[in-house]
């Protein structure tokens, strides 16, 4: 392929995943201007590292990985957000725990609701509250939930993007979802979307 052809090919593929790339960057940075800069940095790095792309079919995941690495290194460089430390601690201290272990220590009313939720709860939740709850997740969990839930990556693909074993992705998905639901449940209680006796089985 000539340079012009390579450039055209690269441009088409970047264009094809631009919305996903921006969406991922936006959820990571939680800021439109930073997200745009992050996407720009990732595209520049991707072009200069194009020779490392082994399988052109996996362009999207490869570009996600570069964006994720840019995010991590940028964080380190700027040291703006102390959450970064938590990202590394969490990433190095994860095992394939089960969901029930994440529920241990939660309040009884949350557990009762968790065991018997109403489907309507998800439908009545405001989209902006869902976004707020996602943005409250620690970085490591937020990016995993976005890659799998929003971008539809498999655990193996997400693991490749994040540079972690698939078991870590599985574990983060469990914990991330449980944290997300706790946050939404708290909001639902405050907003009156969940009645006080929700989850309780009443027998006559």
């Amino acid at each position: 392929m000539t340079d012009q052809h390579t450039k055209a090919w690269f441009g088409r593929h970047v264009e094809g995943c631009m919305n996903s790339l921006y969406g991922l960057a936006f959820r990571l940075t939680r800021n439109a201007a930073d997200a745009e800069d992050l996407v720009g940095d990732a595209v520049v790095k991707a072009w200069s590292a194009l020779a490392t792309l082994d399988d052109t079919e996996r362009f999207r995941a490869w570009l996600f990985r570069i964006l994720h690495n840019c995010f991590i290194s940028d964080y380190r460089k700027k040291s703006v957000r102390p959450v970064e430390l938590a990202f590394e601690e969490l990433a190095s201290d994860e095992s394939e725990d089960d969901v029930s272990s994440y529920l241990v220590g939660q309040s009884d009313d949350f557990l009762q609701w968790w065991a018997n939720p109403e489907r309507e709860f998800a439908n009545t939740m405001l989209g902006e509250k869902i976004i707020e709850a996602i943005d409250l997740l620690p970085d490591a969990f937020r990016i995993t939930v976005v890659l799998v839930n929003v971008e539809g990556l498999s655990y193996d693909e997400a693991a490749e993007v994040l540079g972690v074993p698939p078991g870590t992705v599985r574990s983060r998905m469990k914990r991330g979802r449980t944290m997300l639901q706790k946050e939404l449940w708290l909001y639902g209680k405050e907003a009156g979307l969940i009645p006080d006796n929700a989850g309780l089985k009443v027998t006559k």
């Binding site: 919305n19 439109a32 520049v44 439908n123 996602i134 839930n149 929003v150």
Partner: peptide, 26 residues
Amino acid sequence: ALTDRIKAAAKASAPEKLQNKLRKLI
């Protein structure tokens, strides 16, 4: 239901100016 809502809520569109910036960059 929650997964569907998360997917819908978190989907984003790249702003026009970012798209133009990337085209020029490339």
